[in-house]
Computed example of a mutant assay.
Amino acid sequence: MRNSTPVEQRIDERARRFLATAPAGGAKAKLTEFVVFGLKQGWACIFGATLLAVLMTARLWYQDDAGLARNDFLTVAAVVIQVLMVVFRLETLRELRVIVLFHLVGTVMELFKTDMGSWSYEAEGVLRIGAVPLFSGFMYAAVGSYMVRVYRLFDLKFAAYPRRWITAILAAAIYANFFTHHYIWDLRWVLLAAVVVVFGRCVMHFRVFRREFRMPLVVSFLLVALFIWLAENIATWSGAWQYPSQLDGWHPVGLEKLVAWFLLMIISVVLVAWVYKPQPPETGTTSRPEVSPAAVP
């Protein structure tokens, strides 16, 4: 595994010993691949999952009359989670720089979108910029954390990855459309078509345990966007923020938000690609006997 942290290296050593006797074929081998895949995904989501757990806990048990406003508590909790990730070497400083960039990009969007009435937060606490509590940027940082961690946990490689300058232009256009569609035409469907054209030929190669798997990159964008949409439903239920249609009572977020998250995935991938340059898959190595590093959290 590339750029693993010391903690993950120790996990890898234990995983190798534990899984060394796992069968190489049959149903048990497939079950092993499936279980390791789930554990790796959980490990990659550790920042976002922890933050989501804090949001749910605050929704269920945080007292309205507490001395610290709930939004301020969420901000402090998010900072603590981030600090612990670095202190306990669950995250590298190189990754932290990417995550901070996600935080800044997300906060700028939050300031604009709340001002336009796209969604809103409870007006409480002092740890905020205008109507935007500071914990909101950490939700974007959670996406960044997942992206950089999954990149190395699954040893991602990409066949026919487009030129990075082209993807940068596309990502900039997508980011701009999140702002400009309030004033001029909404180009999201044009941008979706551009994503298919630019990334349509790209195939992602990833290793779970012994086997290497392949998936069209556009399909992976959709799957991750669906996962974020599910997390968004939990976050809005917890009261982290609300869309205008939810002010009279919570209901699931509309599926149209999947398009927004799908496009956001392009921005995320491009940001990560500037830190970890996409590498092509190795030829003739579709199946290797060794255990994939950091197979379990």
Rank of each mutant, 00 (worst) to 15 (best):
residue 181 H to W: 04
residue 276 Y to W: 15
residue 204 M to N: 09
residue 53 A to T: 09
residue 197 V to H: 07
residue 199 F to M: 15
residue 176 A to L: 06
residue 62 Y to A: 09
residue 227 F to C: 14
residue 230 L to S: 15
residue 172 A to N: 00
residue 200 G to E: 08
residue 149 R to E: 03
residue 45 C to T: 00
residue 16 R to V: 04
residue 128 R to Y: 10
residue 292 S to L: 10
residue 276 Y to V: 14
residue 112 F to L: 00
residue 21 T to A: 13
residue 158 F to P: 03
residue 232 E to C: 06
residue 17 R to F: 04
residue 295 A to Y: 03
residue 128 R to C: 13
residue 294 A to H: 10
residue 20 A to H: 13
residue 48 G to D: 06
residue 195 V to F: 04
residue 45 C to H: 04
residue 251 H to T: 03
residue 64 D to K: 09
residue 12 D to W: 06
residue 265 M to N: 09
residue 259 V to P: 01
residue 129 I to D: 03
residue 165 W to S: 15
residue 36 V to E: 05
residue 294 A to V: 01
residue 176 A to Y: 03
residue 150 V to M: 10
residue 242 Q to N: 12
residue 270 V to H: 15
residue 17 R to G: 11
residue 43 W to C: 13
residue 206 F to R: 05
residue 23 P to H: 11
residue 207 R to L: 11
residue 167 T to E: 13
residue 60 L to P: 04
residue 96 L to A: 09
residue 42 G to N: 10
residue 245 S to P: 01
residue 91 E to S: 07
residue 227 F to R: 12
residue 288 R to P: 00
residue 130 G to Y: 01
residue 259 V to D: 09
residue 45 C to Q: 04
residue 143 V to E: 07
residue 110 E to I: 00
residue 27 A to N: 00
residue 257 K to D: 05
residue 265 M to Y: 07
residue 129 I to G: 06
residue 186 D to N: 15
residue 89 R to K: 12
residue 108 V to M: 07
residue 124 E to I: 00
residue 146 Y to A: 06
residue 18 F to I: 12
residue 251 H to P: 00
residue 288 R to K: 07
residue 100 V to C: 15
residue 181 H to Q: 11
residue 6 P to Q: 05
residue 11 I to F: 05
residue 15 A to N: 08
residue 132 V to F: 03
residue 279 Q to N: 03
residue 176 A to Q: 04
residue 59 R to F: 12
residue 54 V to A: 12
residue 213 F to D: 06
residue 124 E to P: 07
residue 252 P to E: 08
residue 93 L to Y: 13
residue 164 R to L: 14
residue 226 L to G: 12
residue 250 W to V: 07
residue 266 I to E: 05
residue 54 V to C: 12
residue 225 A to W: 05
residue 40 K to T: 06
residue 289 P to M: 02
residue 239 G to I: 02
residue 79 V to P: 05
residue 116 M to S: 07
residue 195 V to D: 04
residue 45 C to K: 04
residue 267 I to V: 14
residue 214 R to Y: 05
residue 201 R to Y: 04
residue 193 A to I: 06
residue 177 N to V: 00
residue 141 A to N: 11
residue 101 L to P: 06
residue 173 A to N: 04
residue 155 D to R: 14
residue 218 V to G: 12
residue 272 V to T: 14
residue 84 L to K: 08
residue 243 Y to P: 01
residue 101 L to T: 11
residue 255 L to C: 10
residue 81 I to N: 08
residue 115 D to Y: 01
residue 38 G to F: 14
residue 138 F to S: 03
residue 89 R to L: 07
residue 128 R to T: 08
residue 99 I to L: 14
residue 151 Y to I: 06
residue 50 T to A: 15
residue 128 R to N: 14
residue 44 A to M: 05
residue 270 V to Y: 14
residue 238 S to I: 03
residue 290 E to W: 12
residue 219 V to I: 12
residue 191 L to A: 02
residue 179 F to V: 00
residue 247 L to Y: 15
residue 113 K to S: 02
residue 112 F to T: 01
residue 201 R to C: 02
residue 276 Y to H: 15
residue 29 A to I: 04
residue 237 W to T: 09
residue 265 M to A: 15
residue 226 L to H: 04
residue 283 T to A: 14
residue 119 W to A: 03
residue 94 R to Y: 06
residue 107 T to D: 00
residue 137 G to M: 00
residue 256 E to S: 14
residue 148 V to W: 02
residue 105 V to Y: 02
